[in-house]
Design a protein around this nucleic acid. Structure first.
Length: 329
DNA sequence: GCGACAG
DNA sequence: ATCTTGTCGC
């Protein structure tokens, strides 16, 4: 058995600042061009939101980033400032637009740090096991992560299926060190989730199967955060998403408790599940060492009158409470 | 207007 | 996920 693939999680914030410094005076680039330079256009929305929310450092050149259609886009400050700064650098702004054919810059020198992460996920996909659960499911675990003041706080809970009650829980915190980018959630949440699972294992509290707030096989490369957690910790996991990341399904006219297949790349990778008569579906997919049928069976076994499965509800509640309580008590 | 992206 | 005022319901 070859060793598990390992990965270095890059500092995308530092990489982004390095890219911004490469945009010359009198030129502009786009959110998408920066994202492609990082290795995936899926990062474009994060870049836009991050630049809107950041505080300008000395010699900040974030005003040199505009939208693909030439409109100026978001700015941390008065929107008119962005146009004024560009005009001062010789970039013509007419009707709040820049001509990208004349002023666009895209010739970045960058190591594309998201590409090694994609290759890591491709290797991980080969390690995912879709097999029936071996143990009878007596204890179902769940993990969730909340964020507050630059900290990521994970909670793990152990749910007793027969008693229908919380049996144990633990939390852990780390600095938030990777942004949310669709398809890359695992790199944001995996380190702190591994912390709580390690604590559970050491305490003999590892569940028969662990629910993860996010997807498993329901992912562009068939390895969502639940698959990462499962393979890298060698534990059965199930992905439970609250909205659809990718794939196609028809959820019209679903009754409470009904499921419908989710198709991706000509395969059924998940089931849409309607917990209640009204409201949104959940999307259940195998993470690791479970079948799709088992995954649905387990979620049904821990479903209550809430929208999300009971263990996930408590993991969410605990992680949020711990995050807002701060690093102290 | 469409597509639209877990947390 | 978090940001936040108001609103609805137990």
């Amino acid at each position: 058995m070859p060793s598990l693939p390992r990965v270095h999680i890059p500092d995308l914030y530092a990489e982004l600042w390095q890219l911004l410094r490469q945009v010359p005076v009198g030129r502009v680039t786009t959110y998408g061009a920066l994202a492609r330079a990082l290795g995936d256009v899926a990062a474009a929305r994060w870049i836009g939101e991050f630049l809107r929310g950041h505080s300008h450092e000395r010699d900040c050149v974030c005003h040199r980033v505009v939208r693909q259609d030439g409109s100026l886009g978001l700015y941390a400050g008065q929107p008119c400032e962005k146009a004024a700064l560009l005009l001062a650098e010789g970039v013509e702004v007419r009707d709040d637009r820049v001509d990208l054919a004349r002023f666009g810059f895209e010739n970045f020198r960058c190591a594309k740090p998201l590409e090694p992460l994609q290759r890591f996920q491709a290797k991980l996909a080969d390690r995912v096991l879709l097999c029936p659960l071996t143990n009878r499911v007596r204890r179902v675990g769940a993990v969730d992560v909340s964020y507050h003041d630059g900290r990521a706080v994970a909670a793990y809970v152990l749910w007793d299926v027969a008693e229908q009650k919380l049996a144990w829980s633990v939390t852990a915190a780390r600095p938030e060190q990777f942004p949310y980018i669709p398809g890359y959630l695992a790199f944001r949440e995996l380190p702190v989730i591994t912390d709580v699972l390690g604590a559970a294992r050491r305490g003999g509290r590892l569940a028969d199967v662990v629910l993860v707030d996010g997807n498993g096989r329901l992912h562009h490369r068939h390895v969502g955060v639940a698959s990462h957690v499962g393979v890298l910790n060698d534990v059965p996991t199930i992905g439970v998403g609250k909205s659809l990341l990718c794939g196609r399904t028809d959820t019209t006219g679903m009754a409470a408790g009904e499921t419908r297949p989710v198709w991706l790349d000509d395969q059924i990778v998940a089931e849409a599940f309607r917990p209640r008569e009204t409201g949104k579906c959940l999307y259940i997919s195998p993470g690791h060492r479970v079948t799709l049928n088992d995954a649905v069976r387990v979620v049904r076994a821990v479903q209550s009158d809430r929208r999300v499965p009971e263990p996930i509800y408590w993991a969410d509640r605990l992680s949020r409470r711990a995050a807002r309580a701060g690093p102290h008590q």
